[in-house]
Amino acid sequence: MTKFYLNYLEELEAEAIFVLREVVAQFQRPVILFSGGKDSIVVTHLAKKAFFPAKIPFPLLHVDTGHNFSETMTFRDQLVAELGLELIIGSVQESINQGKVREEQGKHASRNELQITTLLDTIEREQIDCAIGGGRRDEEKARAKERFFSHRDDFGQWDPKNQRPELWNLFNGNYHKGEHFRVFPISNWTEMDVWNYILKENIQIPSLYFAHDREVVWRNESWIPVSEFIELEENEKVVTKKIRFRTLGDITITGGIESTADSLESIALEVASMRQTERGNRADDKRSETSMEDRKKQGYF
């Protein structure tokens, strides 16, 4: 006899597909914010399932900081080609060249915050009214307050204290001209759910997530990859380690962990036994206790 209930992954998938379909029904010009990380890959996979046998009915938007892992870029281009989608690129380098933002200086300089300006400019330029993100509520305390349909005013700002209540399966995506929405279909997923889903669906992910040998330096309690974008201090020693990345961001701020996990199965097992949160290796979240909240209010992902 068939069971008439869904298991938790099936229910999360059904919820995410429902949300993605609401986006297409309610917005004129949605995009998926695609970083090349596992969460935006999962969202893209869910969109593929939601609209099959049609193509995903919206483009991907990549905010390109210029400080990328080359593996991420290759992966992005292959995925876009395979799905037959349009790719919109917002370039942080261009924002810098145009004088809209100023590059941070010093050892801990990163282009993380500069992305906000580029993202909001691109949203305006392309007349995007809904940016779909892979944000999850379990990631961070400010994100725990996010709605599925999250309103942004005409300056792209989030007002966490004055959000629309979200009841049942009803998502109010009404907005005034100039405003937009951020939509988070996998709000209710945890890191473990994402890995279990990638494993179940056998979703392709960048090789960076698998254990590999890489030149790294020990900085901010994690292994930061050596690249042309970071300056080494005198006392920092470059070593080659077998590492993998648990999250992917800019190459300058994404720390790797020592690991031998080289298959989806072994990664899922490793994540299940982790005792640190995934954002613990992200220098962008370590700046202050409220760094995510502060950035999100300004229009961050």
């Binding site: 509520r137 379990d138 400010a142 725990a144 966490p160 209710n188 945890t190 409220t290």
Partner: peptide, 29 residues
């Protein structure tokens, strides 16, 4: 269960926050 800056400063919860945990039997929200 601490959340936003204002909530921590005032020691109160302002808005619904979602928390997640999993046991060998179920996932909870």
């Amino acid at each position: 269960t601490d959340g936003l800056k204002d909530e921590r400063e005032q020691g109160i919860t302002i808005d619904v926050a979602y928390r997640y945990f999993t046991t060998p039997k179920r996932k909870f929200i």
